[in-house]
Write a protein that binds this DNA or RNA. Sequence first.
DNA 1: TAGTGGTCTAGACCACTTC
DNA 2: AAGTGGTCTAGACCACTAA
Lengths: 241, 241
Amino acid sequence: MITRNPSLTDQVKAHIKDRIVNDGFADDRIPPEATLGEELGVSRTTIRDALAKLENEGAIYRKQGSGTFVNRPGLQIKSRLEEIWSYAKVLEDHGYTPSVSVISDVIVPADDETAAALAIEVGGDVVEIEKLFLEDDEPVVLTRNRIPASLLDADHSRDELPLYEFLDEYCDRRLTYYVSEIVPVAFNASQARKLHVKRGTVGLAFVEIGYDQTNEPIVYATSFFRDDLLRFRIIRRRAGA
Amino acid sequence: MITRNPSLTDQVKAHIKDRIVNDGFADDRIPPEATLGEELGVSRTTIRDALAKLENEGAIYRKQGSGTFVNRPGLQIKSRLEEIWSYAKVLEDHGYTPSVSVISDVIVPADDETAAALAIEVGGDVVEIEKLFLEDDEPVVLTRNRIPASLLDADHSRDELPLYEFLDEYCDRRLTYYVSEIVPVAFNASQARKLHVKRGTVGLAFVEIGYDQTNEPIVYATSFFRDDLLRFRIIRRRAGA
DNA sequence: TAGTGGTCTAGACCACTTC
DNA sequence: AAGTGGTCTAGACCACTAA
């Protein structure tokens, strides 16, 4: 049942990932590339492309001259920082069954900071949407997205959608990438109240600007995280090896 | 014993990176892969491997059917979170000329947390080294590394070395990867004094366990950052595209 | 020395974007 | 329709690791 799309490489990748998760390999050692190629009836290049993707995702690592191995610590990382696109998904990956609540959706004038981020005039209309992601009525993530009003349909009723789908639907813009800053904060009174913590509690924030395919800024977003409920982990490997 | 002949791919990669930084390309558009291959006299595969590495580092991006382009925001990111190996280097990349100061180097008994991290007995001997990274006498990063005493030579005089080189030299272990947590903190009295900030100031911390090639934990490290002087930025791209 | 992953070539066709 | 990056093949040799 070899078909195009998904690509052979992606099929091979899924197959190996599946074996890692379900069956496992002896000593966490993945068979040689030549062997895998014969087993699956594809060229070594295809195998290598698939392994490269898995390595990139942190699922495996390779040692020249030695072999290819399952990367146990990498498998434990649920949310890779570089590709977070839905906080609901992040919470799911951490074992929660989240709910989303839109707590405000208003038009405000852009302050200096927002105007600079979105490359619009100070005082220009900006749609500000605040959302809260909860687990069992306990808030975990608070997000505030600011989008130039000129980009948005006046009637954007389904605003509980993930932001990128929301923008796909209600603007003609496609959110392509974020530039994000990781900032430690002490929650102010308003944030603390929404997150059900004491004022001054320390948490993590992402302050980020989202761009479309033409490198135009289309959203200025700030997200606050309850450090006691959600913590980010990363794997750091030596660059040259 | 180092026979580091840069591969063709790495030479091509360096060449393109150089052109991006020094000359630039019209419209930030990088020539087609076929053209590059002819110009440099290498196969398209080699070009593609080089471009793949550059894409991985965030220096460029590709759009199928359209072309390959310089990734301006990606070029601004100095320190990629997944491959930070020397805080001195991090500060340099941010335009500082850092100095390092070892502020303590003592043997302490392992507390519960440290013992668990390093998989040793509670109360076992641990070498604790605190270092401060400064820019113009202003402290920016405070690190505390704890290493099982059994792994370390009693005489480790050159302990201002980057930790991974230090471990290479004074143990027989090679630091292979870290599992790191990103934690927001309010500095306590001791940390605040060392970092020259007020007690309770909010900052970022990495809490991490370093492993050797056999997946054995060899270092438990905590690093504190002055948020006003050093802030981490990342690019987040959509996963599927 | 045998076996592994790493590099490199030459060539074919596909999928998508742009005109 | 033309041009771009994406996928895939078959085969060669190199660099490193481990028995």
